[in-house]
Amino acid sequence: MMLARPAAASIATDVYQQLRDKILSHEARPGDRLIEDDICAQLSAGRTPVREALLRLQGEGLVSRHRGWMVGNGAPLAFRSIFEGRMAIEGYATRLAAERATPEDLAYLRDLLVQMDAAESVSRSEVSRLNRLFHRRLVALSDNTYFVEQHERTQFHYWSLRLPVIFAQDQLAHSNVQHADILHALEQRNGDLAEQLTRKHIATTMRIVADALEER
């Protein structure tokens, strides 16, 4: 029994992360039903880890339970505070990444950019997933677990905004140019520029969200 617990906990964590990613990318949308049997089959997991994962997501407000599980609707939050938090955390994390990233790390980011450049041939949910991977990796390369934890919280809060924001094709293209500029600064080991460009990139996204809010 003592040996089985870590394995069970690991499965529950994996199920939690996969479900969370689906919700954050809007692959699973507000109001969508989450059937335990279906999740068990899709993720090859038992009922116990699936239930543990759902309870954890419920604690974060990402799912609710009313005659079964469903993706929660989330209440709008103060978006400026969220983006300001991202600027502070991700900006400085990227500065550190310029010092600490390995050539292999930079090659991984470059590969993500190549995939995002093919935005017209992939779904919006896939573009969103790649974008999250890029930003998560930037923060992870700071080698600072506190930054990683706090950055993850800003991603949760951004999901909670529940804004009907659809990025236009030109906005996606501009975002990819900004990503490329950030990566170039990392490759040049220019921490000042990397932080400056990251803050500018997040400010650009904040303006798009602000415009969407004004149109509601």
Rank of each mutant, 00 (worst) to 15 (best):
L19E: 10
L19M: 11
R20A: 04
R20F: 03
R20H: 05
R20L: 07
D21A: 09
K22Y: 08
K22M: 11
K22F: 09
K22H: 09
I23V: 15
L24R: 11
S25Q: 02
H26I: 04
A28H: 01
A28K: 03
P30K: 08
G31D: 06
G31M: 05
R33P: 02
L34N: 05
L34R: 04
I35T: 07
I35L: 11
I35H: 06
D37I: 15
D38K: 14
I39Q: 03
A41S: 14
A41G: 06
L43F: 12
S44C: 13
A45E: 06
A45C: 10
A45V: 09
A45G: 01
G46W: 13
T48L: 14
T48K: 14
P49V: 10
E52Y: 02
E52H: 05
L54P: 07
R56N: 02
R56T: 10
R56H: 06
Q58G: 12
Q58K: 13
Q58A: 14
Q58W: 03
G59D: 07
G59C: 06
G59L: 03
G61C: 03
V63S: 01
R65K: 14
R65N: 11
R65T: 03
R65C: 08
H66D: 14
H66F: 09
H66G: 02
H66R: 13
R67V: 05
G68P: 06
G68T: 08
W69K: 00
W69P: 04
M70Q: 11
M70D: 00
N73S: 07
N73E: 11
N73D: 08
N73C: 05
N73W: 12
N73V: 03
G74M: 08
A75S: 14
A75M: 14
P76Y: 13
P76L: 13
L77N: 05
L77T: 13
L77H: 11
A78M: 15
S81W: 12
S81E: 15
S81P: 09
F83I: 14
F83T: 13
E84Y: 07
E84K: 10
E84F: 12
R86N: 10
R86Y: 10
R86C: 11
M87Q: 15
I89R: 01
I89Q: 01
I89D: 10
G91H: 04
G91K: 03
G91Y: 00
G91R: 01
Y92R: 09
Y92V: 10
Y92F: 15
T94F: 07
T94G: 04
R95K: 12
L96W: 05
L96H: 09
A97E: 04
A97R: 08
A97Q: 08
A97N: 06
A98R: 07
A98H: 00
A98I: 04
A98W: 06
A98M: 02
E99V: 09
E99Q: 15
E99K: 13
E99I: 12
R100V: 07
R100Q: 15
A101S: 14
A101L: 04
A101M: 00
A101E: 06
T102M: 06
T102G: 02
P103M: 04
E104A: 14
E104D: 15
L106V: 10
L106H: 05
A107H: 04
A107C: 00
A107S: 12
Y108P: 03
Y108K: 09
Y108E: 08
L109P: 09
R110E: 15
